[in-house]
Write a protein that binds this DNA or RNA. Structure first.
Lengths: 183, 183
DNA sequence: GCTCACATGTAATAAGTTACATGATTTC
DNA sequence: GAAATCATGTAACTTATTACATGTGAGC
């Protein structure tokens, strides 16, 4: 159902293709909704077409593959607004990074530091991507959503920057203990 | 793989049962890793036992159902630390709430306000649950992880509190426009 | 008497991922 | 000449969810 809502969410703002949908789901704002692969997007678009929620036309640009451009219908618009109001799912945050933090004392110090660096970089990149999107954003609701993401991730990043040494100390301490035990 | 890592993550800190694992996955810290159902936990524990990563003993308390208590083995401990170091997955945040925010202008104002209230409540409850866990937490890595979650969610909550009126205004404006168009 | 908490498990189903299949054009 | 980008799609597989199946004891 996530892929479906994501596709409709993009389609209400304008026509698009399966290929573009996949790209959108990988960076920027739409990351908050899904990270879809072709294997979920193409079947989903076909289903939406069968249901009459979108129409499809083929665009042939010479020297390029045929593009199937999808456009939402009035029925599709109505269905989307309906589906948005369906029983709510809670927001979920899944963090392989916090799993590492939780077991910091059992991880090699260099490994842990590398992963903390990687997490900081990831956050910085995502914040920058959203900030760029915000700077060219004209729709107030999109701006709101972008700002929400930027501020939340900024808080997450700041916490890591301010407190990473604590975590790294845990890893060092126990790695020292392991070395001494081996002697 | 999430269920597996979650089970091992709990088991390295002490023995537990399938029933307890499901409860842990639904509130507190472990929500960052999974939200597992019996249908994934029980098969997972059986598999871990077959692989020799955990052992199982049956505890019979008179007048209570038999409990199958699982304990991690040395092999399990080693496997977990290995698996933690496997190629990283990015943290993911999936937000049905931000999907609503993005389409605020097409939603009825009362509906939107209700959902914003619900999201604020959800955040307050989760912040409180983590704070309580923090107040009785003795393991430094767990404390770190809890604080990280608390600060990030506090930032998310603050943003909503400070900016919800903007979103609600969008919904009101377009609902007024719809009424006028109908006249 | 009803509902909640304890406690384990399976089967059918849903949903999505990965790898495969194909192929032209542009950029290095 | 190699790699990346554009572009669509299917098949096999993995993973997890939902609903079902079963049963006791405690509190209201």
């Amino acid at each position: 159902m996530t892929t479906r809502k994501f596709c409709l969410s993009v389609l209400v703002k304008g026509e698009t293709t399966g290929y573009e949908l996949r790209k959108l789901s990988r960076d920027g704002l739409h990351r908050y909704f899904t990270d879809a692969s072709y294997g979920s997007i193409y079947p989903c678009l076909n289903k939406l077409e069968r249901e009459g929620l979108v129409t499809c036309r083929e665009e042939t640009t010479p020297g390029k593959p045929v593009r199937k451009v999808y456009t939402i219908t009035d029925k599709g618009r109505a269905a989307f607004v309906e589906e948005l109001q369906e029983p709510p799912f809670d927001d979920t945050y899944r963090s392989p990074f916090l799993m590492l933090a939780l077991h910091a004392a059992h991880l090699p110090p260099e490994f842990l530091s590398e992963r903390i660096d990687a997490r900081e970089d990831e956050l910085r990149q995502r914040i920058q991507a959203l900030s760029e999107e915000l700077s060219i954003c004209s729709n107030p609701a999109s701006c709101w959503t972008l700002r929400s993401g930027i501020e939340t991730m900024a808080a997450a990043l700041k916490f890591i920057e301010n407190n990473r040494s604590e975590l790294e100390a845990l890893s060092h301490a126990s790695s020292q203990a392991r070395v001494q035990a081996a002697e």
